[in-house]
Amino acid sequence: MSNLSNSWNAFSPDIAEQYLKTYGHPSVSSKALLVDVLKQYTASVAKPSVIDLGCGNAQIGEFFIEKNFDCVYTGVDFSDVLLDVGRRVLPNANFIKDDVNTLGLIQGRYDIALYSHVVELLSSPEESLAAAKRLSDIVVIRFYEPPEFETDTTELKWMDVGNEQQVPFLRRKMSRDYYRMVLAKLDCKQVDIYRDATKDQVHVLLF
Rank of each mutant, 00 (worst) to 15 (best):
N6R: 08
F11T: 01
P13H: 01
E17Y: 01
G24M: 06
V28C: 05
S29Q: 14
K31W: 02
K31T: 03
L33E: 12
L33D: 12
L33R: 14
Q40Y: 12
Y41C: 14
Y41E: 15
P48Q: 11
P48I: 09
S49P: 11
S49I: 12
N57Q: 06
G61W: 07
Y73D: 06
T74N: 08
F78S: 12
V81I: 04
L83K: 05
D84C: 02
R87F: 04
R88W: 02
P91W: 05
I96R: 02
D98S: 00
N101W: 02
T102L: 07
L103P: 04
Q107L: 13
Q107W: 08
R109T: 15
R109L: 13
Y110V: 13
D111N: 15
I112V: 15
L114G: 11
E120L: 10
P125D: 04
E127N: 06
A130S: 00
A131W: 00
A131S: 04
A132L: 01
K133G: 10
R134A: 14
R134P: 09
R134I: 13
V139M: 03
V140M: 03
P146E: 07
P147I: 07
E148P: 05
D152K: 06
D152P: 07
T153H: 10
T154M: 11
G162P: 01
G162V: 02
R176W: 05
R176A: 08
Y179C: 09
M181E: 09
L183T: 11
L183M: 12
K185R: 13
L186A: 08
C188N: 03
Y194G: 05
K199Q: 15
H203R: 10
V204G: 14
F207L: 05
F207T: 06
